[in-house]
């Protein structure tokens, strides 16, 4: 059987350090918008998750 994590935030990618804190979900800090896009893309390819924009400078990756 295939076991994996679904319907869960797998990673947070942000440029705004002070807005995000997490106990369990890994946070990736990006220096600028471009780096944020790039990290998100790489992470989404690895996790097969989808990138969602929270419009506060943070992206989250969710596996649906």
């Amino acid at each position: 059987m295939d076991i994996g994590i679904k319907e869960d935030i797998l990673a947070i990618i942000t440029t705004e350090k002070e807005l995000v804190s997490s106990g369990t979900t890994p946070i990736f800090y990006a220096r600028d918008e471009e780096e944020k896009e790039r990290i998100s893309l790489l992470l989404s390819k690895i996790t097969l998750g989808m990138i969602h924009d929270l419009e506060n400078g943070s992206y989250i990756i969710v596996r649906h």
Binding site: E37, S40, L41, M50, I51, H52, D53, E55
Partner: peptide, 20 residues
């Protein structure tokens, strides 16, 4: 609408990646 994909005004989903 920002990252939200809408069709005829109905919001479908949040697409974060600009390329998508």
């Amino acid at each position: 609408e920002g990252p939200l994909l809408a069709i005829n005004g109905v919001v479908i989903m949040n697409i974060g990646l600009k390329a998508s």
